[in-house]
Design a protein around this nucleic acid. Structure first.
Lengths: 104, 104
DNA sequence: TAGATGTATGAGCATATAATCATATGATGG
DNA sequence: CCATCATATGATTATATGCTCATACATCTA
C-alpha cells in the first residue's frame, strides 16, 4: 500500500522540477537527442544528461540509439495532461491572488 | 517565462510527496481537521501540520476555522485528476516491467 | 482563571537533490 | 589508429527537504 503511494510520488516528483519540465515541454514536439536538448533548455550537457537518465529510468521518457546519438521521447501522453492540469491550477491560483490584491 | 516553469514545478512538487499524497487522498472524501488527519495517515501531529500548511500556502488546500479546530479541504478537483493520471502511468510502467520479467 | 484540547512553530539532524567541473566511455569518419 | 563528436558518470558542493522533540499559542470549558 505504502509502496504504491511512494511509486506514485516518484512519478510526480520526476515531473516536478523546472529543468525536467523544460525537457518534457521540448519533447512535446517529438523526439530529440541530448545535443539538441541541452542547448534548447540552456543547461549543461552533464546536468541535462542526468535529468534525462532520471526521466527514463522512472518511465517518463523512452530512449533509443540512432548511430552516435541517443534520442529521447515522451513515453506517456498522460504526462502532458498532468502539465495542463497543473497549469490550470496555477491559473486559478494566480487569479485568486490578483483578486485579493485588487490588481485585476 | 522561467518563473512560470518554477511555479508549475512548485504545484507538482507539493503533490509529489508520500505524506502529502496520503493527505490529499484522505481529503478526497471531504473536509477534515488536523486531529482527524494525522492519526488517519499515521504521521506525527507536528509533521502533518507542516505538510498541511505547505499544501495550503501553495494553493492545493483551503482551510477554515471551526471553533478550536482547523478544517482542511481540497481546493481544486484537478489535483485528483493529476493523481489518476499518475496512477495510469504507473500501471502502464508496471505492466511493461512485468512483461520483461515474464511474470504476468 | 486553570486546565484541557487543537494547532503551529523553533531547533536540530539526516538525507536527498541539483548543479558543476573534470573525466571516462563509446561510436564514427578520415 | 587517431581525432572527434555525443553521451554518461565520478566527485564535490550548496541547498532543500522531511522528520522529530519540545514548546508555544490559541481557544474553549468547567
Amino acid at each position: 500500500m505504502d509502496e504504491l503511494v511512494i511509486a506514485r510520488a516518484d512519478i510526480l516528483k520526476a515531473i516536478a522540477q523546472p529543468t525536467r519540465l523544460k525537457i518534457i515541454e521540448l519533447l512535446r514536439d517529438g523526439e530529440r537527442c541530448v545535443c539538441e536538448i541541452f542547448p534548447a533548455i540552456a543547461e549543461e550537457q552533464s546536468n541535462t544528461s542526468r535529468h534525462l537518465n532520471m526521466l527514463q529510468s522512472c518511465g517518463v521518457l523512452a530512449r533509443r540509439k540512432d548511430g552516435i546519438k541517443i534520442m529521447y521521447r515522451l513515453k506517456h501522453p498522460e504526462v502532458l495532461e498532468i502539465l495542463q492540469l497543473a497549469t490550470a491550477i496555477l491559473k486559478k491560483e494566480i487569479c485568486g491572488k490578483s483578486d485579493l490584491l485588487k490588481v485585476v
